[in-house]
Each structure stands twice: as C-alpha cells, then as structure tokens.
Simulated scan of single mutants.
Amino acid sequence: MSGEVGQRPAPVGYRLIVPSEWERIPLRSGREEAVRGILDRAFAELARTAPPAKLLPFRREAEKRLLRAASEARASNGIELYIPVRETGGTKLAASFVVSSHRMEREIPSDPLLIAGELASQEADSAVGHDLRTMEVDGALTVRREWAAPADPSRGVETGSRRVDYFMAVPHDTRRWIGVSFSGIGSGDPHDTMADALVEWFDALMETFVWRYA
C-alpha cells in the first residue's frame, strides 16, 4: 500500500461522564429553555408538599440567578454550564463547572503555562495559593490550575471559593483550547475538608474526559 496518511482531523466535541444529579445548560443557544426545564422538574417535586402559589416567588428568583450565571459564563467564552440540582449523598452541593472554548490569535507557544496565563480570568489576579502544573488529558497537552478565590460582596459573593481550571490544547488544531473550570464553596472556607472533597470529585470527573471525533 502506498501514499501518505493524512493528518487526523480535529475533534468536534468532547464527552464527560456527569452524575445524574447534575444538569447541563447550553450557553450558545437554548439556555432559557434549558433553565425552564430544570426548574420545571425541580419545582414539580416541591409542589407535592407546598402550594404552587407559595413556590412561585422562589422559582422566579431561582430562574433569575440561573440565567445570570449562564450569561456570565457565556461572556467568558463558555459553551456549557453544569450545575447540581439534586442532593449528592444527602448533601446539597454549592458548586458548578463551565466548559469554554478559546481561539488563540497565534499558535500554541513552547511554554504552555503562558497560554494558561492568557486564558485565566482576571479575578485570579487576587487569588491565593496558585497551583499550576501540566499533564495530559486524553492525549492532549493540559494545564491544570488550582486556586482560592476571595469573597467579593460587591458582586454578591459572600464567601471564598475553591477553583480548579483545566486548559486543554485541542488535538490537531494549533490555536484552539478547551477550558473546564470548576468552582465550589465547600462549607464556607475554600480550604476546608468539604472543599478538598469537591476538588477530588472534580479531578475524578476530568478523568472521564475524552475527545469526540466525527
């Protein structure tokens, strides 16, 4: 057999094994419908024990908060937002993660930590305790960053949070990166045992990440 084998095309997406307690909100289109669907299911369960009229103000507030979170994530190149909507092991998690897509103006530099710095959000500038390291996720060059974000009452954020970001170079595309960014409050202290457990959970989740090809 002769002839050259062409380069494998870039992936068209990804797959993650997300627990059933979590829901996905698409951010490029359909986010309003997704939020309404999530709230329909959640408040249908609550309506079994409380009059719908009393639940309506809480639903409106929940919808406003979810749509605001989705808009903020979309503004940071987010393509999907994942939130826990049911208790996990009897505990209601205060956490979320966002998948984002980034197109760089130049090819990936020799030092991937430079890209991580470019992709990092501005609020990380005031963060405490950065932990930055490189690895591979499904064969892709990846930069993992862990840090603690302080409280920001001006934005309605009353407690600090633990953050973990994975920035992955998309295979066979020298200018595109995918980010998966996790935020968890824990029990109020970003360094408490609950926050540690949330980080361990997210790292285990990222072990299920695989690229999806056409």
Rank of each mutant, 00 (worst) to 15 (best):
S187Q: 12
R74E: 15
A50I: 15
A214G: 15
E136T: 13
G90Q: 11
L67T: 08
G90D: 14
S2N: 10
A75P: 06
A47H: 08
R68W: 08
L114W: 10
A44M: 06
A127I: 03
V98L: 11
Y14S: 02
S126N: 05
R41Y: 10
R15T: 12
A204P: 05
H102A: 05
G186T: 08
P150R: 09
M1A: 10
R15V: 11
H130I: 05
P57F: 04
T49A: 13
L67Q: 10
A195Y: 01
W22N: 12
R144L: 14
E61F: 09
D131G: 04
E4H: 04
R175T: 15
A214Y: 14
I185L: 15
I108E: 13
M104F: 12
S2I: 09
S161M: 09
V143W: 05
W147G: 01
S121F: 04
D165C: 01
V5F: 08
A75M: 08
V164G: 00
V199C: 02
S76C: 06
E158Y: 01
E123P: 12
T193Y: 08
R28K: 07
P52F: 06
S96M: 04
T142I: 08
E87A: 15
R68Y: 10
Q122C: 06
T174W: 10
W211E: 03
E105D: 15
G3K: 13
Y82A: 03
Y166D: 00
R175M: 14
A73H: 00
F97E: 05
S121A: 14
R28N: 04
A47M: 11
I17Q: 14
Q122M: 14
M206C: 04
P84H: 12
T134N: 14
R86C: 00
R48M: 08
A73I: 01
L93K: 15
A75Y: 05
D138W: 10
R24A: 11
P26W: 03
W201A: 13
W201L: 05
E158V: 03
V164K: 00
E23P: 01
D138L: 13
V164W: 01
I108G: 00
R24L: 09
S2Y: 04
R31W: 11
D196G: 00
F167I: 02
P26A: 02
A120Y: 00
I79T: 06
S101V: 09
R163N: 07
W147Q: 04
A149M: 11
G6M: 09
S71F: 01
V137Y: 10
E118T: 06
V164F: 01
G6I: 12
I185F: 11
V143P: 06
E105Y: 13
K54P: 02
D40I: 14
W201I: 02
R175H: 14
E123K: 12
E61S: 13
R65W: 10
A116E: 07
Q7H: 03
E33F: 13
E4I: 08
M104I: 00
E33I: 14
T142V: 09
E63Y: 07
R103H: 07
P52S: 13
K54E: 15
T193P: 00
M206F: 06
A148T: 11
R103K: 09
S126R: 06
E158A: 13
A214K: 15
T88M: 12
T174F: 05
R162N: 00
L55T: 10
A124N: 07
E107P: 00
